[in-house]
């Protein structure tokens, strides 16, 4: 992948150029969390390059939490999906666009709403600089910088320099359109970047040492279904579903119809959580997972066994959003640790 060196001013120019042809969303620190907002001209680019990952998962922009997807009997018109640039998401977020694509863009019945947004999405991701104690991407086989594609441009902040990595043809085009002053990078800079990335990676690794999560965590997850940790965590869990809703990888939803007159309705696709008792419920009120312990186990098994079997990667990117969101302080790493016992 091509890499160039630019100044902070050039990044500002890139953002202005993107803002001219698309909606541009950037992160901003609000108290402890990083929120997302529309870009304004005087925003300081170095701050947003270095910020922690946004609180909201990236999927919010591809399949919104509550969205009209059909009307009856008259069909709804095709949706508008204006060009959108997302700036400042980290590798944990961009990594799992591959999973969302796999699910939502299958050949037979692609989700047309997702597809339209996906086609018009431009991603400028940034290397992680800040590591918080909820971060554990290294424990699920990933890195705090992009390795799996799914970005158009990525920015790494190295001392007082910025390095742009181009991840797609659209990325090249955007650089050309912004007429950025791109400088070749030297081998020395390349090495320094590698060192910096290595250092951040080590920090994430080291802070997770105590959990001792096995590289092949899918094996104990499959074999140790009776692990006591599921029942243990079920005592604390309040079934809010927050872990699923903020998850970078979770994609579950249900279709809810709202009556709008005689034999007419509007249909909405609404995010759902497998932690709710009604999630898998059948007609007649039977459910295959009546106990919360079973539902917690299902969440872990789906992420670390079933998706691994289907796609050869975990349904978890180690972003730690579920840990921050949980009102009962349930840490998914403790669940995995417990499964290994």
């Amino acid at each position: 992948m091509d890499q160039y060196k630019v100044t902070a001013g050039e990044i500002n120019r890139l953002l202005k150029s993107q803002a001219e042809k698309s909606r541009l969303i950037i992160p901003i620190e609000e108290g402890e969390q990083v929120e997302l907002k529309e870009f304004r001209e005087n925003d300081n680019p170095s701050l947003i390059v270095d910020s922690f990952r946004p609180y909201d998962p990236l999927k919010t922009f591809l399949m919104s939490p509550f969205e009209e997807v059909a009307t009856f009997p008259e069909k709804m018109s095709e949706i508008e999906a204006p060009n959108l640039t997302l700036f400042g998401f980290k590798a944990c977020s961009t990594n799992h666009i591959r999973l969302l694509d796999e699910i939502m863009l299958d050949d037979e019945w692609p989700d047309v709403f997702y597809r339209k947004r996906r086609e018009n999405l431009f991603i400028i991701s940034c290397d992680c600089v800040e590591v918080r104690d909820t971060c554990f991407c290294t424990e699920v086989g990933l890195k705090p910088y992009p390795t799996t594609g799914n970005f158009d441009l990525n920015i790494s902040h190295l001392n007082d320099q910025f390095i742009i990595t181009v991840g797609s043809e659209e990325g090249h085009r955007a650089l050309a359109e912004a007429s950025l002053n791109l400088q070749e990078i030297s081998d020395e800079i390349r090495e320094n970047l590698q060192e910096q990335r290595q250092e951040i990676t080590e920090r994430v690794k080291n802070q997770n040492d105590d959990y001792g999560i096995d590289e092949k965590i899918h094996e104990p997850v499959r074999e140790n279904r009776d692990a006591g940790v599921f029942a243990e965590k079920a005592e604390d869990c309040v079934e809010c579903g927050g872990c699923n809703l903020v998850c970078s990888s979770c994609y579950c939803f249900y279709l809810a119809d709202r009556e709008v007159g005689e034999e007419a309705f509007r249909r909405f696709r609404v995010w759902d959580s497998c932690q709710y008792n009604a999630y898998a419920r059948l007609a007649g009120d039977e459910t295959p997972r009546p106990m919360l312990m079973q539902r917690i186990r299902h969440r872990i098994a789906h992420k670390f066994d079933y998706l691994k079997e289907s796609f050869d990667y975990y349904g978890c990117v180690g972003c730690g959003r579920c840990i921050s969101a949980c009102p009962a302080d349930i840490d998914i790493r403790e669940l995995l640790q417990g499964v290994q016992k």
């Binding site: 699910i103 299958d106 249900y254 999630y279 898998a280 079933y306």
Partner: peptide
């Protein structure tokens, strides 16, 4: 097989059995 099937097209997750 009978499970809760909402979307019908392999996306909404409800009818999962293993992979």
């Amino acid at each position: 097989m009978e499970k809760n099937m909402s979307c019908g097209v392999g996306k909404c997750g409800h009818c999962g059995i293993g992979p």
